[in-house]
Design a binder for these strands. Sequence first.
DNA 1: TTGAAAGCGCTAACAT
DNA 2: ATGTTAGCGCTTTCAA
Lengths: 332, 332
Amino acid sequence: MSVTIYDVAREANVSMATVSRVVNGNQNVKPATRKKVLECIERLGYRPNAVARGLASKKTTTVGVIVPDISKSYYAELSRGIADIATMYEYNIILSNSDKRPIREVELLEDHLGKQVDGIIFMSDSLTDEIKKEMGTANVPIVLAGTLDANTNLPTVNIDHEQAAYEAVKKLIDNGHKRIAHVAGPMSRDINKFCKKVGYERALQEAGIPLREEYFIETDNTYDDAYDKWKKLASLDEMPTSIFAGNDEIAVGIMNGIRDDGYSIPDDFEVICFQHTLLSRVVRPQLTTIVVPLYDLGAVSMRLLTKLMNGEEVDDTNVVLPYRMEERQSTK
Amino acid sequence: MSVTIYDVAREANVSMATVSRVVNGNQNVKPATRKKVLECIERLGYRPNAVARGLASKKTTTVGVIVPDISKSYYAELSRGIADIATMYEYNIILSNSDKRPIREVELLEDHLGKQVDGIIFMSDSLTDEIKKEMGTANVPIVLAGTLDANTNLPTVNIDHEQAAYEAVKKLIDNGHKRIAHVAGPMSRDINKFCKKVGYERALQEAGIPLREEYFIETDNTYDDAYDKWKKLASLDEMPTSIFAGNDEIAVGIMNGIRDDGYSIPDDFEVICFQHTLLSRVVRPQLTTIVVPLYDLGAVSMRLLTKLMNGEEVDDTNVVLPYRMEERQSTK
DNA sequence: TTGAAAGCGCTAACAT
DNA sequence: ATGTTAGCGCTTTCAA
């Protein structure tokens, strides 16, 4: 079949061990032998079998990435950050979509572990007890990226969503608004429920503005749903004068609703949101946003994972990355 | 360390062969034995080692996916199609970004082959001789997804971009336009150079409209570049009256340029483009587009690959998928 | 229906 | 600096 290390050894009149040393860049090889071996490798078209290597060395230089849906640009961007750092440290990535389904998440974890990945980066809306239990059986490090970790002590990488939401709403308050709606993503996502919403409420309370149930709208995170939900807000006796949206896709849905009703932004309504995609910059008016460093979340997660896989001591395994606000045209 | 097939065998008082049969669903096992083995597997928390299995069976149930940039929604969407079919056939995916760099593409192919993937799905702008040569050394099937294949006979999955471009431009012509610009993606991408541009030219020629050099604009496929390039068109003595854009991101750049110059769409300019993202639907006016079935391109590629990996006879390895035009507000 | 045994292609002591 | 020799954990004949 295909050429093995043994074929190369025979061809070069050395042992497999020597070929192995050459392939792995071990210095204990006489330059002349190295040259000879390299020539045979080239001539025979030898390509080391990583599976055999993995079995023998118990390391696959592969990490698992479990993501809700790679077709969402949020995760696509994050994954690119993961991939670049993985490449830098010579790891491959096995990428799987969970669609946030707990059963599937457990299956995938099991599956990746069976494939002997050296580590895993996990993303989800919320961690079930089952998945936590499954993670407990893993013998390789796991890092949660952009995923809240309630009462486990798994390594995580995040931004301070609560504070970011607070600042976003604070900006609206500072601009004089008292009627501020929050059009959120699904509450099944912990970050929405325990961070963004909480930050929104904290800002209002701090300003002495009472919370109004009718100003809180939950969406399924899609443009279309957000567009529809605008009607709810529009039908209120007392409409809000500004909107804090969970992300830019939601914000654009709301914006188009506002616009189609003949109102204008930022004159009639001010809008602010978390920025996940290009959308924020290309719609008109451009959206004022909290810029989420998605690429960095991925990159830092992977970097953290490499340390963990190396058995390095990590002082703080709960990394919090900075974010920034970008003021554009949807606020004054 | 971790529990192996041998541990299970001992615990269940059977041979490894029997455990292997149970794990692999082989029918030649007495139900009682199967039950006993299954219990031990459960009790010991045995998890089959896919690396060992891969070495022994010479199949890894893993396919390689080499993509220019997963953070682009074009490829993210396509990859999701690949992933879903892969899951259906119980394959894992190793996903790598090439950034379209030929050297990197060759490295990645080599790398994936070394990992003993059972097949590869490859995406790129253009195939260099080196990559074709490298592909020749592969002992597993390779499918090109959304990637033009000049004079090789690799399996491919595509839509008829030339015809689609022709129809898009034809629509503009039918709407009475004679001054039609083509704002294209980079010509380094074969599909742009040999399909979309050619379809544009064919439509014009067929209508007896002479090609004008100044109406052909190349961009780097980004919103920002397209936005800048609008100025070129705007500065012409005789501006075009309609634009055929390579994709929606380019189209939105052009649209915003048009709009910022105080013109209106579709009254002053009509715009049509290929649809790669959500953008087409959420901008106002919504864009008339050629809808590219990205998910299906991925799914069909993976389905084709499974057949090839199974050694099935495939009558036609150059699949051409249908597309459709969606008329929205950027044309009359 | 079950077991024994020979690899799969490599790494990693241990020798020399 | 190089070779010898066990495995790594599984699948897969071949026997029984």
